[in-house]
Write a protein that binds this DNA or RNA. Structure first.
Length: 815
RNA sequence: GCGAAAGUGGCGGAACUGGCAGACGCGCUGGAUUUAGGAUCCAGUGGGGUUACCCAUGGGGGUUCAAGUCCCCCCUUUCGCACCA
């Protein structure tokens, strides 16, 4: 056996075993080093096992954690499984394997794969959200919500997937109106569901974004998702009827320009508004919109449709009678489900008015041009001067906007209002594989929460989970029939389970003490370890998991359970790895199977190649041959140590250039690792190794070389943990390299005395000159003007200008 | 349609607050070593041109001594949002 050949599989199993035996990665609760909670988004135990996306999340994140450890932090890096959810249940329906079993099997397999990454996970802190010991406390979170008045039941139109036979959250419906999981067209259906009142926290969810270091992109998405808009609620009495239309508008300044009102077709007020003459047509229209799917209906390109109800509303500011229409361009679930229409100043109303020949009344004139309602081709939505607006003519629309709401409030017509696009969080799922909702429905007492002492409400195992349009649990009498906790009479459990996003909304609190049995989390440990210092995971969770987790944290903060209200101080989204420029997918047949490459090259090479491919933020394109480069690099390191570390040197002289290279490498890898620029970090290490080979070919100072290589090995270790540990021990050390300290670089060594200065003539590089960094401008100028190459360009010409930027560049302008 | 990010060799990608474009790697070419293959090592590698030259960071303008980087217009791609009143 040639020991000059880098054999990763041998090395890697050896050191993983050693680390486990020595407890290298056991988290020390009592350490007095500063804490660092490094968290990755836990994984869903699917039959597809760990894919490259997982690796790309976990490998580099572990490198970061190891780096932090070497920098002197007490790093907490846990791992677990988000084990409830639809796919396991769908799998069960198809193959007849109980979700509990398939989940268990998948977890076991994935644990093995996760261990192969060689990350510093301390498995004593593992979480499985489908474990009754865990979901007991997910139910506790529900009860907290209930106690805080933030959980309520409501009959509401919900997204229904006919294939999965379940309700979906808005976020689980794709832009095309399809089920995120199975691609079936989603329809609307009315059901009584549990909601969490996230809308109560809208403003605080916005405010908190100012205090956290998250990607701007993600913050913008959350802000848009919350969609705060300021405006007014205005009441329009209905002519000859004891009814009022309440509309929300952000443009109260256009109130005099209202020429009709529109109500969403599914709004309950519609039947009351419809006159006998119009009833037939209105009902036809409503039926038509109900069968249309959401995308067609909500598309901007969608031709405006609508029907007159026969009723008229009265504009409260001028008493004008205006027709009330119904149209599907008004969304029932936003605002009040009805709007005042100002075609002159709103593009959508304009299109509608044009189509149905409704009047257009201009109330705002731009300052420099005059617009006319007959000739205008689009609505005018900018500010201007008020006209046709009674006593308010002549003032600017911006001032008017501020004043009109006060006027409304004085007259009792309307009031200031802030509206949000954010909807309450629908958490009921009519599925089996989730945490049961801890509520009992009692004919006498109504909805009664299950007392905390009776938790968990255990998910029964013997259940027929084939879809039948209602929750599988509803057909399990042993589960359903229960005594009311309040009156002791016969009652029924809630048959629904919770959205898995509830499970993942608080898991980071559980990690620090996942086995605690009398409380969801260990308060002392949570105070010590939270908030999470670095959270790393996919951008696809921007408006779901990441918003829910923030909400739950704020709720628990208000409940006095925790002392911080933002869970993740720093957030980073890793990019996506493509292959041949395309997203990996089974249908394209371009999926990289990590196991295959890990087996061939080892996990150090695999992890490092992923980090080298491109920027961590943007991802990169996988190349089957590209991985060779990293494999060669690690082999080169292996041979370097094996061949030269113990070579008898013949000189006492140190190499200034290699020393400088080392310090430059330490500094670069440090700053690049801090900013997740792993690819450049690796490039710097490659440069070091190239220089080290140049050095060992010359006369060696053994002590100097050993010193240099020891330090480099520590720098390498977060990136190639197994190899670094192997070589560390090869050089004679007994303890783990991960118990070392990150080497310090010396700024003085990095300072250059002599530099090669670029010399440009008319902005074009013509030559370089060696100068002393400290030489003054006149000396540099004198030297440059004497230079042969420079003379070639300057003789016979006039030097108009000489520019010297110290230590950077010189530019001579000649004519 | 709105919002955000990005467009650099054959390929993946570097380039900090404007200052030597193409670091590092893949691939390729030539050479050394080897029975051969592989591995390794050395040299070269943006394009053009007969050697001290010209052209090049999606396209077109501009600012500047100097632009991949700043400003304006346009094109393309990716990702969010999508009649939110």
């Amino acid at each position: 056996m040639n020991n000059m050949i880098y054999n990763p599989s041998e090395i890697e199993t050896k050191w993983r075993k050693w680390w486990e035996e020595k407890g290298t990665y056991k988290f020390n609760k009592n350490s007095n080093k500063p804490k660092f909670y490094n968290l990755v988004m836990f994984s869903y135990p699917s039959g597809n096992k760990l894919h490259i996306g997982h690796w790309y999340n976990y490998g580099p994140a572990d490198t970061f954690a190891r780096y932090k450890r070497l920098k002197g932090f007490n790093v907490f890096e846990p791992m677990g499984f988000d084990a409830f959810g639809l796919p396991a249940e769908n799998y069960a329906i198809k193959h007849g394997i109980h979700p509990a079993i398939s989940t268990r099997n998948n977890i076991e397999y994935m644990e093995k794969q996760l261990k192969a990454i060689g990350a510093m996970y301390d498995w004593d802190y593992e979480i499985d959200t489908s474990d009754p010991k865990y979901y007991k406390w997910t139910q506790w979170v529900f009860l907290k919500m209930y106690e805080m008045g933030l959980a309520y039941q409501k009959e509401a139109p919900v997204n229904w997937c006919p294939h999965c036979q379940t309700v979906l959250a808005n976020e689980q419906v794709t832009a095309d109106g399809e089920c995120e999981r199975c691609g079936t067209k989603v329809i609307k259906r009315n059901l009584k569901q549990w909601f969490f009142k996230i809308t109560d926290y809208a403003d605080r969810l916005l405010e908190g974004l100012e205090r956290i270091n998250w990607p701007e992109k993600t913050k913008i998405m959350q802000r848009n998702w919350i969609g705060r808009s300021e405006g007014a609620m205005i009441e329009f009495p209905v002519k000859d009827k004891d009814l009022k239309l309440t509309v929300f508008t952000t443009r109260p300044d256009t109130i005099f320009g209202v020429t009709y009102c529109v109500v969403a077709p599914e709004h309950s007020i519609v039947s009351k508004l419809t006159t006998d003459a119009q009833r037939n047509e209105v009902e036809k229209y409503i039926n038509k919109t109900l069968t249309e799917n959401e995308i067609e209906r909500q598309s901007t390109e969608h031709e405006k449709t609508g029907v007159f109800t026969g009723s008229y509303a009265i504009n409260p500011v001028n008493g004008e009678e205006i027709p009330i229409w119904i149209s599907d361009y008004v969304i029932a679930s936003y605002g009040t489900g009805m709007v005042m229409a100002v075609p002159a100043h709103d593009t959508r109303d304009f299109a509608f008015a044009k189509k149905f020949n409704l009047p257009i009344k201009i109330v705002i004139q731009p300052e420099n041009v005059t617009i006319d309602s007959k000739s205008m081709s689009d609505a005018y939505t900018e500010p201007g001067i008020m006209i046709n607006s009674g006593d308010f003519n002549g003032i600017s629309s911006i001032d008017f906007k501020k004043r009109i709401v006060d006027y409304f409030e004085e007259k009792g017509i309307g009031k200031r209002h802030i509206n949000y696009r954010l909807r309450d969080w629908l958490i009921s799922r009519q599925r089996y594989w989730g945490a049961p909702i801890p509520i009992v429905h009692c004919p006498k007492c109504g909805t009664v929460p299950v007392p905390v002492d009776d938790l968990p409400v255990k998910l029964p195992e013997n259940v027929d989970f084939n879809p039948k349009g209602k929750s599988p649990l509803a057909s399990v009498p042993e589960f359903m029939n229960v005594k009311c906790p309040k009156c002791g009479g016969d009652a029924e459990r809630d048959p629904d389970t919770m959205d898995t996003f509830v499970c993942s909304s608080w898991y980071y609190l559980r990690y620090p003490d996942p086995h605690i049995d009398d409380y969801p989390f260990n308060k002392e440990m949570v105070d010590k370890l939270l908030p999470v210092d670095q959270y790393i995971g996919g951008a696809e969770h921007a408006t779901m998991h990441l918003l829910y987790a923030r909400f739950v944290t704020k709720m628990l903060y208000d409940a006095g359970e925790i002392q911080f209200d933002e869970p993740f101080t720093n957030l980073f989204h890793q990019g996506t790895i493509t292959r041949n420029g395309a997203k990996m997918s089974k249908s394209r047949g371009n999926v990289v199977n990590p196991d295959e490459f890990v087996e061939k090259y080892g996990s150090d090479t695999f992890r490092m190649y992923m980090m080298f491919m491109g920027s961590y933020e943007e991802g990169g394109d996988w190349d089957d041959k590209g991985i060779n480069g990293i494999h060669r690099f690690l082999s080169r390191i292996y041979r370097l140590y094996k061949t030269y570390y113990f070579t008898e040197g013949k000189t006492k002289e140190e190499s200034k250039s290699l020393k400088k290279r080392l310090h430059y490498t330490i500094k670069s890898v440090e700053t690049d690792t801090e900013r997740f620029s792993f690819n450049t970090s690796i490039a710097r290490m490659m440069e070091f190794v190239n220089d080290a080979y140049d050095y060992v070919k010359k006369e060696i100072n053994t002590e100097f070389l050993q010193n240099t290589l020891d330090k480099f090995l520590i720098v390498l270790s977060p990136y190639a943990p197994h190899l670094a540990e192997e070589l560390w021990h090869f050089t004679g050390k007994e303890s783990s390299i991960f118990d070392e300290e990150w080497p310090k670089y010396d700024e003085d060594i990095l300072k250059e005395e002599k530099i090669s200065l670029a010399v440009q003539i008319n902005g074009k590089l013509r030559t370089t000159v060696e100068i002393d960094i400290n030489s003054n401008e006149s000396d540099v100028k004198e030297l440059i003007l004497k230079n042969e190459r420079v003379l070639h360009y300057t003789t016979g010409k006039t030097i108009k200008k000489f520019i010297y930027i110290k230590g950077k560049i010189a530019n001579i302008v000649v004519v």
